[in-house]
Amino acid sequence: MALVTFTGYPASAKSTRAAQLHTYLAAKHNNVQLLSDHSLNISRNVYSDSREEKAARGTLFAAMQRLMSPNTILIVDAPNYIKGFRYQMYCAARELKLRVCTIYVVAKEEQCREWNAARQEGERYPDETLENLIQRYEEPSSMVRWDSPLFTVLWSDDQMPFEAIWEAVSEGKIKPPNSGTVAVSKAPTDALLTLEKTALSIITELMSLQDGYGGTVNLSGNNIQLPPRRLTLSELHRLKRQFVQVHKKAITLGTIEKGSVEWDASSVAHKFAVYLEEHLKH
């Protein structure tokens, strides 16, 4: 029936949200499974060693394949921080003609550190491992098909968008399996250049528009609200690099649904303006 993939920083309350969703969906469907590192007895310490982590992902993926079925809603509660692994999960679900959706649980880095420190011994990530996973985290994007539909849940939200998630797993479009003989819609050959140039022009425009601190500015036709502080060029370049990295794979692999993404300058400018507003709040 469906695969629901949770993703987010370690110790960001993913398991709490996954349990909430499991309770909600179980009241609507008679076969809802919750798969997690905990249910597979995978230790937090495996993320301190690349070989052990790779083996753990293999264990999770194998268990996921066993549990997926046309009558099952499978919730996978794990870090799932690597885009390539989420794509692999997505492809496995498509092979069985299952619906998919991604739940992105968002928490501040400091909040994750506090929650991790409060956990019992054996359930905590080692401090160095926690920091490493946060730095390596690859944010999901609604612009790529393997993360869509994407539901973002903030750490401060009282409720999850339960009804919208239920609609996605019960009525959402079922995409056909991958096929080497089926042509996929690829991004234009100049899409990456457009992404880089447009994001850079937005930064240049924003720096020239800063007058005082905070307020609303118009960036290439897109109004965004700035935080009440002076923005630095290095901060904006860091966000540009993150934005480009998030969307680069969709361009280089050509793994996008036909018509689902527009790579022209105005569309990229809109996406980057929204991205800046969301990531400049603190």
Rank of each mutant, 00 (worst) to 15 (best):
A2Q: 06
A2N: 04
L3D: 03
V4I: 14
V4S: 05
T5H: 02
T7M: 05
T7K: 02
H22A: 14
Y24W: 11
Y24F: 14
L25H: 05
K28D: 00
K28V: 00
N30S: 14
Q33M: 07
L35Q: 07
S36V: 05
S39Y: 00
S48V: 01
S50A: 13
E52R: 12
E53C: 04
E53S: 06
A56M: 07
A56K: 02
G58H: 03
G58D: 02
L60W: 04
F61Q: 10
A63M: 05
M68V: 04
M68H: 01
N71D: 15
I73Y: 02
D77C: 06
Y81K: 06
G84Y: 01
K97R: 15
Y104M: 01
V106A: 06
C112E: 06
E114Q: 09
E114I: 05
W115S: 01
A118E: 12
R119G: 03
R119K: 10
E121H: 08
G122K: 11
E123M: 07
P126V: 00
P126G: 03
D127Q: 10
L130G: 04
E131I: 01
L133N: 01
R136M: 13
Y137G: 01
E138I: 00
M143R: 15
V144H: 08
R145T: 01
W146Q: 03
T152L: 10
T152P: 01
D158E: 13
E163Y: 08
I165K: 07
I165V: 11
T181R: 08
A183W: 02
S185F: 08
L192E: 12
L192W: 05
L195E: 06
A199K: 11
L200T: 13
L200H: 10
E205Y: 04
M207D: 00
G212H: 03
G214R: 09
T216R: 15
N218F: 00
L219F: 13
L219I: 13
N222H: 14
N223R: 14
N223H: 10
P227T: 10
L231P: 15
S234M: 11
L236R: 12
K240Y: 06
K240H: 11
V246Y: 07
H247S: 10
A250C: 05
I251M: 08
G254D: 05
D264I: 07
S266E: 15
H270V: 11
E277F: 06
H279E: 07
L280A: 08
K281I: 15
